[in-house]
Write a protein that binds this DNA or RNA. Structure first.
Length: 498
RNA sequence: GCGCCGCUAGCUCAAUUGGCAGAGCAGCUGACUCUUAAUCAGCGGGUUCCCGGUUCGAGUCCGGGGCGGCGCACCA
């Protein structure tokens, strides 16, 4: 027992609470009982007895539990506000007349802010009209050994993220956000299942990473004595599913990308990917719109959501579509097409002051960079940006009529990219050529370029139906619908260890 | 990775030009049978992120490091 936990350099308030625990044990009172005879929730008391007039008393007995978030004591009558998981609060009253001298004294000496307590008694309304449980007995349900932060001031952002359990106790927005996220994910699953999509789980540990342009995390398998990659995308496995006849398939799971972290990027992030055989980028775009609109409706009850800054954001109705090349041309006042030479694009970039890597950037990379520089930030309302350059989209099929572009859209919402969708490339010969081009880029030092995935090509050689596919960031969908930063939409975002 | 800003009591924050380290809440002791962040009286609580330097004297100035935030770069 002489570990650091018992040393004198513990904060005073932790010492005090440990002493109380010890005192309770010495007195034969269990500070962490295996159970308490709870009969109902605080919320159920609130709704069940909402009709009580101020001062009205009932003989309805309940046993409730909750975390003590406020305490107010008078000599022979103590008040406390209990809170349960979703933030619902209820007052309890512990009086000399109700529980007797010893239990009242124990309440006053043993109960601290943050403790979980059990209170048994009648449901009444106080003279001031506060719905309450008037105790005839109480028990410690679980003793808090650390003090709660003050409830009247915001927790610092770092404490919120590092100690989310505390954040969830003290901050209503944290509780609302975690429930909103659950509701959104539930809605996505329901919408997909309603359309006969099958949910699968594909490998997170991969021998070969692929399906996106990103730097992977590398790990090692002792059993196979080989390096493995944490997946950057499930795409190539979901397409194998489509080849195998799972014609409507989706996965909601984590991707890992060994890249920068900021207010819109997290090293691990949740992603929905869905593939629809016999569809294309139009049908999958319509599905994506349905997913977002239904999620807003089911999680927030409206398609005009209220963001964290108080502004409203409308995801309802029809969404705008713009073409990447036409919108860029219009913005520049200069015709840009898939045939525009690299030198001309470089000249435009120089004129605009956009930094370019002249040695490596292809036509497609330059067009996308110029487009993002000129257009992306200005797209506030949900907007599909369609028909991308071919070189930067190695898994997407060529446009059915336009030369030099692929059937790909990006969905922009409030200035950031929420989702992307393709008419999938299913010709294994063309796919191999695309991979070989990627391999060439990798050999030139592009560590985000894809590698040739022979097993995936082999799968495609068994014939993959024409398909539409999409990927949408779950964290970003929450950001879009709430206006929060990505670290607020993820319960436990990665933070550097102290 | 680069630049700017921050780190002080359990929590949120003050501290003048380099001159005794403070407040609110929380905690402890006492009073109080209807409070609502209860109130009243009293008390305790600090490695000022870490290491080094300048100085009679450093929370404050200088150098190095850690963690965080913002901006830029990369990415979705």
């Amino acid at each position: 027992m002489d570990g650091p936990e018992d040393s004198d350099d513990l904060p005073e308030q932790v010492r005090v609470r440990r002493d109380k625990r010890d005192r309770m044990l010495a007195a034969g009172v269990e500070p962490f009982p295996v159970s308490v005879p709870r009969t109902t929730s605080l919320a159920a008391v609130r709704t069940g007895w909402a009709h009580l007039a101020p001062g009205e008393e009932t003989t309805d007995l309940v046993g409730v539990t909750g975390r003590v978030v406020y305490q107010r004591g008078t000599g022979k009558l103590a008040f406390a506000t209990l809170q349960e998981g979703d933030g619902t609060r209820l007052q309890v009253m512990v009086s000399l007349a109700g529980v007797g001298e010893d239990a009242l004294a124990a309440w006053k000496s043993d109960v601290d802010l943050g403790d979980l307590v059990f209170v048994h008694g009648a449901v009444i309304s106080s003279r001031r009209g506060e719905l309450s449980v008037l105790a005839d007995a109480w028990r410690m349900a679980s003793k808090a050994l650390r003090p709660l932060p003050v409830l009247h001031r915001e927790l610092s952002e770092e404490t919120r993220v590092r100690q989310r359990y505390v954040d969830l106790i003290v901050r209503d927005e944290a509780r609302v956000t975690v429930r909103a996220r659950s509701a959104v994910v539930r809605s996505l699953r329901r919408t997909l299942e309603d359309r006969d999509f099958l949910e699968v789980e594909t490998p997170m540990l991969q021998v070969q990473h692929g399906g996106a342009s990103a730097r992977p995390f590398v790990t090692h398998s002792n059993a196979f004595d080989t390096d493995l990659f944490l997946r950057i995308a499930p795409e190539l496995f979901l397409k194998r599913c489509v080849v195998g006849g799972i014609e409507r398939v989706f996965e909601i799971n984590r991707n890992f990308r060994n890249e920068g972290a900021d207010s819109t990027h997290s090293p691990e992030f949740a992603m929905l990917e869905a593939y629809e055989a016999w569809g294309d980028y139009d049908s999958i775009g319509a599905l994506t719109k349905d997913l977002v609109q239904t999620a807003a409706q089911q999680a927030f009850g409206t398609q005009v959501v209220t963001l964290a800054d108080g502004s409203e954001y409308d995801v309802g109705g029809e969404w705008t579509s713009i073409g990447m090349y036409p919108s860029l041309s219009e913005s520049l006042g200069e015709e840009i097409t898939p045939q525009t030479p690299v030198a001309q694009l470089q000249a435009v970039a120089a004129r605009l002051g956009v930094a370019v890597d002249e040695a490596r950037w292809t036509h497609g990379k330059l067009v996308e960079e110029l487009w993002e520089h000129r257009i992306a930030d200005s797209l506030h309302a949900p907007t599909f940006v369609r028909d991308f350059p071919v070189e930067t989209s190695p898994l997407t099929r060529a446009h059915r009529s336009a030369e030099g572009v692929v059937e790909k859209w990006d969905l922009y919402v409030r200035g950031f990219e929420l989702a992307t969708g393709y008419s999938e490339l299913v010709d294994p010969v063309v796919q191999r050529e695309r991979f070989e081009e990627q391999a060439r880029l990798a050999s030139l030092g592009d560590d985000e370029a894809m590698r040739i995935d022979e097993d995936f090509l082999r799968a495609q050689e068994h014939a993959m139906p024409p398909s539409g596919g999409m990927g949408m960031g779950i964290d970003r969908l929450l950001m879009a619908l709430t206006g929060l930063g990505i670290r607020e939409t993820i319960l436990f975002p990665l933070v550097k260890p102290r």
